[in-house]
Simulated scan of single mutants.
Amino acid sequence: MKTSTYLRRYWQLYFLLILPLAYFAIFKYGPMYGVQIAFKDFNFFQGINGSEWIGWDGFREVFQNQDFYRTLRNTLMLNILDLIVSFPAPLILAIMLYEVKALWFKKLSQTILYIPHFISWVIIGGIVYQVFGTQSGFINNLWVSMGFQPIPFLTDPNYWLITYLLTGVWQSAGWGTILYLAALTGINKELYEAAEVDGATRMRRIWHITLPGLRPTIITLLIINLGNMVTIGFERPYVIGNVAVQEYSDVLSTFVYRIGLESGQYTLATVVGLFQAVVGLIFVLGANFAAKKTTGEGIL
């Protein structure tokens, strides 16, 4: 079939691509023009083109800043712990929901698990302080009424780290199950029936059928997560963090906020953003290469 004939026959499908392509062109590729700020002494009034070219001076200043290395360490630490704690959670939840036979219970559980994803981190931060606050938190009030000392969930760095990770699991795990549940529907049901006839237990069926069937989805999501290893959302560490735990809660996104918006050092903020993008690309390509070498599957 000729290309022109194909386009005329399926023009509706190509028309539907206009909006997503426009979105990526405007909001993803368009801002790349501003990357040159990293190489200029950016002046807000002179604009990008009118600012003086300084080359790699901005990179040298950032890489000599001790706060940069501290926030980079915290970003990597929190993302690695999130990967260990939060990444398996939606997988486990999806398998558990898939094995549930009562349809009403499955739908109710999914709804309850999805709700936290739609709650703003500002609201979640308020909930966290109401529940885990040292002086006025629900848990500590109950704990103190029983004669025990309050637990510094939000003021001790180690306790804060646990609170941070568990809050992330609560907020994201339910929504993450959607991809795995969708992948589970593609597994041939006859495989489960044959395994059950052969006497395979439920755990055996999960291990030998469910997990292999989910392997492409797991690998894809793992590669994406590894690509975001030096990128971290601003809201979660900023809202839940405080001065008492700044040695853990201060990450690259809050560092960019301080030097960019608060201090007006847009050149340095752009340098950090460009650093995150380049390192993220390296992580994605490296993880994809390793996945292809070990499992034969990847995203590129």
Rank of each mutant, 00 (worst) to 15 (best):
F45T: 08
F24V: 11
I26V: 15
I26C: 04
F39G: 12
N43M: 08
Y29H: 09
L21M: 12
D41H: 03
L19N: 07
G47Y: 03
Y33L: 10
F27L: 07
F42H: 04
V35A: 14
D41M: 01
S51T: 00
G47C: 02
P20G: 09
F45C: 02
G30R: 07
S51Q: 02
N49Q: 14
P20N: 04
A25N: 01
A25F: 12
P31Q: 03
G34C: 01
P31V: 09
F45K: 14
I48N: 04
K40I: 08
A38L: 07
K40M: 10
A38W: 08
F27R: 01
G47A: 01
N49K: 15
A38I: 10
N49V: 11
Y23K: 00
L21G: 07
F24M: 14
P20W: 08
M32T: 14
I37N: 05
G30S: 13
F44A: 00
K40V: 10
M32V: 11
S51H: 01
I26T: 14
M32C: 09
F27E: 05
L19V: 15
F42C: 05
Y33I: 12
Q46E: 07
P31R: 05
I48C: 05
Q46S: 02
Q46H: 03
I37Y: 06
P31G: 08
S51F: 05
G34R: 13
G50H: 11
I26G: 07
K28R: 12
M32E: 12
L21W: 02
F24N: 06
A38G: 13
Y29R: 10
Y23C: 11
G50K: 02
G47R: 00
F27V: 03
I48E: 01
A22F: 14
I48P: 00
S51L: 05
Y29K: 13
A25P: 02
I48V: 15
L19D: 11
Y23A: 15
P20E: 04
P31L: 02
K40P: 06
A25Q: 04
P20R: 08
G50M: 09
S51M: 10
Y33N: 03
N43Q: 09
L21H: 07
G34P: 06
Y23S: 11
F44R: 03
F42T: 03
I48W: 03
V35F: 13
I48M: 13
S51N: 05
F24T: 14
D41C: 00
N43I: 09
N43H: 11
Y29T: 04
N43A: 09
S51P: 02
F39W: 12
Y29F: 15
Y29D: 05
I48T: 10
M32H: 04
P31K: 05
G47N: 01
F42N: 03
I26L: 15
I48Q: 07
F44Q: 04
Q46K: 07
F39Y: 11
N49S: 13
F24H: 07
F44T: 01
